[in-house]
Design a protein around this nucleic acid. Structure first.
Lengths: 185, 185, 185, 185
DNA sequence: CGATAAACGAGACGGTACGTCGAGTCTTCGT
DNA sequence: ACGAAGACTCGACGTACCGTCTCGTTTATCG
């Protein structure tokens, strides 16, 4: 009885949003421009995402494909490459800014906070499973808490990127993994 | 050779800025209102801090006095209480939002990024010295890198607060310290 | 296909602008206040008139209804009363200031200069037609150039008001008309 | 008993002001810049001229040397060349704008209005004397009022420049003089 | 000759307005 | 209903001058 939503719109808008986010970061991101680029009316965007923040989070959610993990069975190597991949994703300054703005957006809109945490959790999954399997294989100490280990591995990465500004390179990833394995094995 | 700056102005403005940041967070922070509260002309504010971001960072820098650390000599206890204090400071949602916005601001204005990193470094100092002394006392393993250990301790804290949203309580602080000491000793 | 402009807005804003111009003159005229009085957002004003100058000219254009002229057939009397009316309009000091500012605005924005000249031309029309008819009736000398005569009548009026500051009263109007008719008949 | 004013300052400032007025007109004229150009402190300027308007008027007063008039005895020729000179001075658009702004300034500050009228009167003197002598020589009709004639000559000039925008060239000057002499002789 | 009052330079300060940008909401028409 | 187009509200931002003020630094002249 009513005109159905043009499903192409979602894709076009998100695509445009991603592009703008990458080009200019959150600061230079304007909903107007996104709509213009997607060749869609501003109203149409608002009908789907009630807020700039919502749109940005939605676009962000589609930005990083869950990196496929090649698991070799060598915990050290696998962890190192995974951490390295995460670090590589975070390194770019615009990414840092975007992540920061997303956190802020998540505070302004609780549901977005929820969604973002889900996203992070999902990104964390791969590494978590890696650790779980290692634990089951007996490659980790008996009493070790995989979640804590993961925090110890990933936390410093974000800490360096967001807070201290120290470099996050493969060497650092290796150092982190070495330290973690030295303890928990 | 010219009329000297009214030092009272700095204090009044920063005071007002702090208050506003605490009340409404970065989102609800308006330079206009700050000036009004400080009973100072808007232009006077702009003379000192060229941008809203600059003012916010300046205000933030004066928000947290370097927490005095009581060192007992018991590494475990000292670290736990220090971490707990850091965590306590970060827990409040407005703080989380503010920290996130500051990171973003730091990306918009490189000089601010610099300033912020200096601030974090300063906040980090106390804990770092604690670890250094422990190392010198032999309470840590010979080859241990204090900076890395610190990352492993503080990183997860920020990670939980900003990213995963998991609770940051004293129990978690203890777990982190235990894990770290288990390895590096 | 889009939401049409609220025509009421134009009226309300121009009305407010006229009022402000009359009360405070160009010097005390603020676009902000106009918008406030018209109970309209400042940006809405800017959408229609890109500049304070534009708005002022637009408001000015609606300030003086084309004075209705009663033509009796007696050239001398008709001219005298017309000149008198023009003079009366110019006499008030705020008017003088406003006219001056308008000229300046017309120089700052060429399109406004155009518009203003059109306005003046229109105001001049009535008197011009009066002279034309007189010429056709043979009340003026054959070779007389009505446009020149008009300049000689109206020019001194503006000259006195704007430049010399000498009084512009009915007696002066009469003297001008007498002199003009003495020549051109 | 006190340090005397540096007389060079007045000259330097007025020079700079004239230059700025010529370059950018009243609109682009900033007291700050004038002071900078004159290599003088802003305060020093304010000590002499209480207001931007005052300074501008003062500068203007020195802008046009009273044009020396060569009187040949031929009223028509003398008047035509004088009018032509006046017209030439007014033609430039910046001059028009400046004159307009000066009128406005004269309304904002009554003393300035006074000063300006004096200036105009002075500029008018030459032409007035010309007419007076012509009258005394009997080149004008007995009952003719020189002041009125002058208004009829000069008024249209200003009228065209400021109001109607019609060209003010030598031909127009001649037409005006012809018309005036046709009547008053 | 040294005190002193005013001139001067430099710049802080208060204030007022301007014009701009972007977010969200609302209204209308077309499909 | 959905979609396009764009008007409207609102709130802030940063800028540009203006005119006033408060300093420290000169400099002519008077006691």
């Amino acid at each position: 009885m009513a005109r159905p939503r043009d499903t192409g719109v979602d894709a076009k808008v998100l695509e445009a949003a991603r592009a703008l986010l990458r080009e200019r970061g959150y600061a230079g991101f304007a909903l107007d421009e996104t709509a213009a680029r997607a060749e869609v009316a501003r109203t149409t965007v608002y009908r789907r995402w009630p807020t700039k923040d919502h749109l940005v989070v939605a676009a962000f959610a589609t930005m990083f494909e869950t990196a496929p993990i090649r698991e070799t069975g060598d915990v050290r190597a696998d962890l190192t490459s995974t951490l390295g991949a995460i670090g590589a994703g975070l390194r770019r300054p615009e990414t840092r800014a975007l992540v920061a703005e997303l956190i802020a957006a998540g505070t302004r809109h609780p549901e977005l906070g929820e969604a973002l945490r889900a996203l992070w959790a999902q990104r964390r999954t791969a590494a978590a499973e890696l650790l779980d399997r290692a634990a089951r294989r007996g490659d980790l100490a008996a009493g070790a808490d995989p979640a804590l280990i993961l925090d110890q591995l990933v936390g410093p990465l974000y800490y360096r990127v967001l807070i201290s500004g120290d470099p996050v390179d493969d060497q650092y990833a290796r150092a982190l993994v070495d330290a973690a394995l030295a303890c928990h094995r």
